[in-house]
Design a protein around this nucleic acid. Sequence first.
DNA 1: TATAATTATGCAACAATGTTGCAATAAATA
DNA 2: TATTTATTGCAACATTGTTGCATAATTATA
Lengths: 135, 135
Amino acid sequence: MENLLKNKNIRVTPFRMDVLRVFNSFENAISLSQIEEKLGSFDRITLYRTLKSFQENGLIHEIVMPGDIKKYAMCEEKCGHKEHNHQHEHIHFHCKKCSEVYCLDIPALPNFHFTNYTIENVEIQVKGICEKCQK
Amino acid sequence: MENLLKNKNIRVTPFRMDVLRVFNSFENAISLSQIEEKLGSFDRITLYRTLKSFQENGLIHEIVMPGDIKKYAMCEEKCGHKEHNHQHEHIHFHCKKCSEVYCLDIPALPNFHFTNYTIENVEIQVKGICEKCQK
DNA sequence: TATAATTATGCAACAATGTTGCAATAAATA
DNA sequence: TATTTATTGCAACATTGTTGCATAATTATA
């Protein structure tokens, strides 16, 4: 599992391994507080910096939605360094009942075109009711 | 202009009119700090509550993007009460150069389908370079 | 493998952002 | 115009995020 870090040029430290294990222990995208709960005791600042470096190096991506929803999820292997190379061929689905955020695969991102606008990055967010909460 | 508030069942007060005028003085989506600058002197808490009630009543919508980007933009006339009725047939375009956020019209939202997931709301965010920053 | 260069950690202090309760006040309703 | 109902402004607090710096750990180098 160390290689997940090494492959993205992230120095391996015990704390970063702890955080990585937290990600691996969840199915879906997770919030800061979920990470904090799992970690138990930790330094808040170090955690912020860890998440920032994970993001910058394409190991995780941030998912934000209206209503102060902010979560983190693992990127795919291929995901590149630095923010501008994050490109995910999936949508982010937020369940209004259980508040889980799922990364759902789609065949391809829709293709927009606006004259004179250069499009570098597309994100799609969907809200609704997830599979498990359908009753 | 009072009617913009009345039509959405928002009580008309001097402060709310001030905030509304701020929105009308900008072309694109605006940030909290842009509102604050325009207002000059004001009560911070009242502003938060004003924005919240504008949102809840479908007068404005919140736009959030990875990287702590949070902006507000006016809704269309038809936009309904309460958060869950916000549905905008436009995408949010964030320019990486000038940081403006544009609401750009699209003919229709793409149509996703995931077995056993109920989709209520779709948001699309695009990053790139806007018209004006193309050089 | 010991050393040097580089990066990460933990702490303190601070800054920004957002919330709650409550009394006073203003707006809509009868 | 009196009554009901919602808004305002203030204090206090809670949450979230950042910076600088000395120490410690990791990686690269000789």
